[in-house]
């Protein structure tokens, strides 16, 4: 018994995780690698942005002339999206996907408690996301001296932690919806809906005063508004996006322990 369910779920995801790692590494490296070119034409870019301030705000661009600003506007815009998609996929698979396919039926005929099953699957999903965050960190850390980014390892780590936690928020939302409903499509749709609302809430909604409240429902806001690349870990905001997955997982466990499975 022990943590067999945890290990098995991760091993079954090994190939998918390798693929996502590759994607995260490639996107991180590709965009980061443009920084030296960007630095040479920084003045031009700055003029372009000053000419269209609304566009810059909508896209989440602050300052394209510093390496922090550039990485934030590119890598921290795209990699979180990739990782959110990966996390929603794994979260939806963890309970609802296996339940719908029938693979959960045999495991649940074994001496494994429902809470234990759920906690192990959640932990495995979290590790999946953590691995992608670590890949992103290692790529940035490795490229930093080559590209002359001049961002400290601590701040790079803070940005990657934020990215991973944001992904985990939406992944766990999908996980919890799946654990409560037993439907994979609900899990994916729900997770994706929340993620889109969150993403728009922290970008385009900022240009409309009436929609500014939306940012408070966005994990992206708590993850990136404190500018982790510039300021390092913000304890308060980080606590929010670390607590959300735990609360969601606890709710999922409570409901899953009581409901009928596989009907």
């Amino acid at each position: 018994m022990g943590v067999q369910v945890f290990g098995r779920f991760l091993r079954e995801r090994a190939r998918g995780l390798a693929g996502w790692s590759l994607a995260v590494a490639a996107v991180t490296a590709m965009y980061a690698a443009f920084w030296p070119t960007m630095a040479d034409t920084a003045d031009l870019m700055q003029q372009y942005m000053e000419a269209m301030p609304a566009m810059g705000e909508a896209m989440g661009w602050n300052d394209m002339t510093s390496p922090e600003g550039y990485i934030e506007a590119t890598v921290l815009l795209l990699v979180p999206v990739l990782m959110v998609v990966a996390a929603i996929g794994v979260g939806a698979r963890a309970v609802a996907g296996d339940e719908e396919e029938g693979a959960l039926e045999l495991v649940m005929a074994y001496p494994v408690g429902r809470t234990s099953l759920l906690v192990q699957r959640f932990a495995a999903s979290a590790v999946h996301t953590a691995v992608l965050g670590a890949v992103m960190f290692l790529v940035l850390l490795g490229l930093s001296p080559v590209l002359d980014l001049g961002i400290g390892a601590g701040h790079l780590a803070a940005a990657c932690l934020s990215t991973a936690l944001v992904a985990l928020c939406y992944g766990t939302a999908a996980f919890a919806i799946g654990a409560v409903t037993g439907r994979r499509s609900f899990a994916i749709a729900g997770g994706a809906f929340l993620a889109v609302v969150g993403y728009l809430g922290d970008t385009f909604a900022l240009t409309v005063d009436d929609l500014e409240w939306m940012r408070f429902t966005s994990a992206f806001y708590y993850g990136f508004d404190p500018e982790p690349l510039v300021n390092g870990v913000d304890p308060g905001y980080t606590l929010v996006i670390a607590a959300v997955p735990l609360v969601l997982a606890a709710v999922a466990a409570a409901v899953f322990a009581r409901r009928d499975v596989l009907v």
């Binding site: 396919e101 029938g102 693979a103 039926e105 045999l106 005929a109 074994y110 001496p111 494994v112 408690g113």
Partner: peptide, 18 residues
């Protein structure tokens, strides 16, 4: 359930293996 299932062997009607 956990203690009980320790002593049970179960074959589901529809087996899914991937």
């Amino acid at each position: 359930g956990v203690a009980l299932r320790r002593e049970v062997g179960y074959l589901p009607g529809e087996l899914t293996m991937a």
